[in-house]
Amino acid sequence: MKSIRSFVKALNTNYYSDFIVDPYSDLTDFSEQILLVRYKNADYYEKSLEAIHLIQREILLNVQSLYQKALTDLYIRLANKTGENFTSLLALNIQALKVTMDMLKNDFYIDDSKSRYYSTIVDTDYIGKGESRKIDIDNYPIDGHFIKIIKKWVVEEQELKEEMDEYESFYHIGYHTKRFKVLSYLPYALWHISLKFIEDLKHAKSIILEENEANPSGGKLKWSGKKTHIGFIIGTLAAEGYIDPPKLKNEDVNYTAFSKLIKQVFDVEVGYDTLRKYLNPDDEKFQENKATFEKENFHLPHKKMVS
């Protein structure tokens, strides 16, 4: 399910790094309406909202392409029923996407420190934090002329300071609102894409469950013997020429692939590694079973002997 992993990875990516550049980078385009921000204790230029919107479109086009590939792979695997515990894999992917959705939901709120998009406009840090200039009236003439000017200046500075304390940035509230909408748009869109894919996974899971209910064995032959017996018996059939098992390039039997084929045909609770050992005549597990069966006079002639 490589395509599904690639799709989920794209959903989990922190794309805010695509929207900012190092202040000393040659990629900085000063012709844009760039914004100096502090992100993770470092200063960056945030690209213009128009540039960010274009980048977001490219990201979503890529995510949509990965979504289609993941969906195609999902239903191909469902049709072929390849792989063990497919239902469990679906359930794990659903849980992983739920975690992703929680993270993306935090990203909606870019002014919250829990968001991976959280940054502060640098001018915010300096407003209202400067010390007022100290005035020593005794240093000025006492004719009252300068005192009136100074008092007026003190009042104006205090009013300006109070105004700066009230507002968080020199950027008007409309800009902050637009910036919030633009930056939160991508995680919001990815959240909905994640939700849609969860529904696709649940649909695939329901198809499997319906088939299992209609045919409890899942179309497989039920193995009634011991789980160790199936490897020895089918391994013996292959060794005596009755079954043509999958081969490696050097023509040796591929016991891993052989065990997977058996699991597709038989309903038996045995792991691949265990089954592989009992299939291989050179393995001591196969020999242990062989001794047990021969003790009960079990004998399977080579196919050429009975042809």
Rank of each mutant, 00 (worst) to 15 (best):
D26F: 07
Y39V: 06
K47I: 03
L61Y: 10
L71E: 12
D73A: 04
L71V: 07
T28L: 11
S65M: 09
K69V: 09
V63F: 02
S65T: 13
I76S: 05
V63P: 01
Q68K: 14
A51K: 13
L66H: 07
L36E: 13
K47E: 11
R57V: 12
Y67G: 02
V63S: 02
A42S: 10
I55P: 03
N80E: 12
L60H: 05
L60D: 04
Q33H: 12
S31V: 03
S65E: 15
S31H: 13
R38W: 01
V37K: 04
S25Q: 06
N41K: 12
L78F: 02
L49K: 02
Y45C: 05
I52Q: 04
D26C: 00
R38L: 04
Y44V: 05
E58K: 15
Y45I: 09
A51M: 13
H53Q: 12
L36N: 11
E50A: 14
A51V: 15
H53K: 14
Y24I: 09
T28K: 13
Y39W: 13
L66F: 06
N80Q: 10
L36W: 04
Q56C: 05
Y44G: 00
R38V: 12
Q68H: 15
D29E: 11
Y39R: 04
R57A: 09
H53M: 08
R38P: 00
H53F: 08
L36G: 06
E46K: 07
D26L: 06
K47P: 00
L36V: 13
N62W: 03
H53R: 11
K69G: 00
I55G: 04
V63Y: 02
L54E: 15
R57T: 15
N80R: 09
A79L: 12
N41A: 07
Y24S: 10
V37G: 10
Q68R: 14
Y44F: 15
L78G: 00
E50T: 14
H53D: 13
I52M: 06
L78N: 03
T28P: 00
L61K: 14
S31R: 08
H53I: 01
V63E: 01
K81T: 04
S25Y: 07
Q33T: 10
F30Q: 10
E32K: 08
K47L: 14
L60T: 09
Y44H: 10
D73C: 01
